[in-house]
Design a protein around this nucleic acid. Structure first.
Lengths: 225, 225
DNA sequence: CTTTTAATATGATTTTTATCATGTTTTCCG
DNA sequence: CGGAAAACATGATAAAAATCATATTAAAAG
């Protein structure tokens, strides 16, 4: 099994602030897990026994609301950590994690995270900063949800996905989502998501071919209101 | 000036995890500041030189959105810390803080927070946990915003304010907000907020007298849809 | 104490978005 | 491959909420 010390994904998260000794321990007891598209990594309300680090692929964090609809809170890609917060606050998970394509996760037992958090100042400060960033971005999302139209949120979602997860050789978004997934991120009805994407296509802001979406007019998307 | 060591507000936040030596230092260099209703404590985009701890009164954290309307992200009462996140991530503030009534804040210079964060494991773990909680609650708010009706959000806002800030001798909510403030919390137009509160009154879920609001049927409010 | 201004209230209308209905196209799987 | 199921698409309608308009009331200022 590959070692954490050389892992590229690690560079992207707080684990890089661990001492080499801590990292060696993590490496020794981590396990790699594979999930297929649609697989549930964990469900909301579960007690987690560790943290997952994304080695490849993309997954989503969702919450089932009272009306029976899922809301997607965040998409996570390479290097991002899942379950970090639940482990820190020692609570059951607030969100479910679902694979959006075939993914590879490293599972690191709780102890290997919590002990360094109490012993390694650099690590805990790094985690602190990453939580602070998450919090800021959650606040921004809240305000977007409160004050922007569905159309604006959809445009921003497309731009976000392109920015964070990039495009393939043909220029299409790397992350392939169903219209229902888009609806769940934007916070709207599936039909509305479909309609808006159709409209964007008509207005030549995007090009679509099945689930493949290409942003053809980024500036135009930014101007949507 | 009163000492932090004996301060009741301190019991409610992470400062309680400081060592007595750290707390003594904080106490020695903190300053107490008074603000009147409506005063701006800090504006979004400012660089903070420290953290504020609420000794008495209530303030709101708001963000001005593109359409010129304010959105209120959080209400803060006794013991809560303002600016914590900006100081941790060493960024400019994302939100403005405004006094909702006459308030008393203790200002603690940045160093007194950041140094212990690097040196005192208990303190930094405590702050970590409180950020984790804030993050969870921000996620919940996002989902409420995405999936609940304005009426539901208003009902929940009233219940939240009663629960967190309590009622006065007559049973009315302790925190006095304008209809515009309610609109800003709920994320709706001021007229809509007024209309919904009028409707709640008609349905005998609340009683109002000017800005004073009394919840008369808590169970009814919980059932609003 | 009156004048002015801001806050509250409510009706009418429009816009936005959700829901329902019904095809069509993809995708999945035996 | 062929049929079933899921995803996509789009029209029609309904519901939710924003906006515009205009009173009325309360609060602040002189």
């Amino acid at each position: 099994m590959s070692k954490c010390e050389q892992c590229i994904a690690k560079q992207l998260n707080s684990l890089q602030s661990m001492t080499s000794e801590e990292l060696r321990k993590v490496s020794a007891c981590k396990t790699t897990r594979y999930y297929k598209k649609g697989d549930i990594i964990f469900d909301e309300g579960e007690s987690l026994h560790g943290v997952y680090c994304v080695r490849s692929g993309v997954c989503k964090l969702t919450k089932l609301s009272a009306n029976g609809k899922d809301h997607t809170v965040k998409l996570l890609g390479k290097g991002e950590l899942l379950g970090q917060r639940s482990v820190i606050s020692d609570e059951r998970t607030n969100l479910s994690a679902v694979a959006l394509n075939d993914i590879e996760l490293c599972f690191v037992p709780k102890d290997q995270i919590v002990t360094p958090l109490h012993e390694n100042q650099n690590f805990s400060f790094d985690v602190l900063q990453s939580l602070a960033k998450d919090l800021r971005s959650a606040e921004d999302d809240l305000i977007n949800m409160a004050q922007k139209t569905v159309k604006q949120r959809m445009a921003e979602t497309l731009i976000y996905i392109q920015k964070v997860f990039g495009t393939d050789a043909s220029g299409a978004l790397n992350v392939i989502l169903s219209r229902e997934d888009y609806a769940s991120i934007v916070g709207t009805a599936t039909e509305s998501a479909i309609r808006i994407l159709s409209q964007f296509k008509k207005e030549r802001l995007i090009a679509t071919s099945g689930k493949h979406i290409t942003i053809t007019d980024l500036e135009g998307l930014k101007r949507v209101d």
